[in-house]
């Protein structure tokens, strides 16, 4: 093989590799819209925060609001609820969190009402509901018990009920998300 031919061949190889690389890069980029279309769309993202008026909730009552398609529990806790939650020995918990870490204002507990085990909605919102062994919530699917601060006490769930980001805009208005 002559030198000229070798140069010619390596130049060709470079061309082939360059073209292949450009082609593969472009294809990869073109795939992105087809994946990204499955992500939450603009109208879903716009719903990412809601404002809730908590004035009508009496002490001891709880309401469930929908945020991002999920139930959010808002409970106006009684003195007893708070006392139970504060006096619990944090060190004994599966997912140790103090009550102050769970609620910005002690009388208001705001959590995502989805069991951290496999996604069911625990009971305990309505007055007649089973509240579990710890005066909080009880998940009927696989028997997880949550206390009055929404912490996991018994059953298969690995974590306490998740907290959404929220902010008190005033004493009676809370922004979730």
């Amino acid at each position: 093989m002559s030198t000229a031919e070798t140069v010619d061949n390596s130049r060709r190889d470079f061309l082939y590799i360059a073209t292949g690389a450009v082609g593969v890069t472009g294809t990869a980029m073109a795939v992105w819209p087809f994946i990204d279309q499955m992500n939450p769309d603009a109208s879903q993202k716009a719903l990412s925060s809601i404002e809730v008026d908590i004035a009508p909730i009496e002490v001891g009552q709880a309401i469930t609001v929908v945020w991002r398609g999920k139930p959010v529990f808002i409970r106006h806790r009684t003195e007893e609820d708070i006392k139970l939650a504060v006096e619990t020995d944090v060190a004994e918990l599966r997912d140790p969190q103090t009550d102050a870490e769970r609620a910005q204002k002690p009388e208001w507990l705001i959590m995502i009402g989805i069991c951290t085990h496999l996604g069911c909605v625990p009971l305990g919102q309505k007055p007649g509901d089973v509240k579990g062994d710890y005066h909080g919530w009880f998940c009927p699917c696989h028997g997880s018990h949550y206390d009055s601060a929404g912490r996991i006490r018994k059953g298969p769930a690995p974590r306490n009920l998740d907290l959404p980001g929220y902010k008190f805009l005033s004493d009676t208005l809370v922004k979730i998300g």
Partner: peptide, 13 residues
């Protein structure tokens, strides 16, 4: 129109 306006890359698709 939802595809055209809100879905990510919907207009392109």
């Amino acid at each position: 129109e939802h595809i055209m306006r809100d879905v990510n890359w919907g207009w392109l698709l």
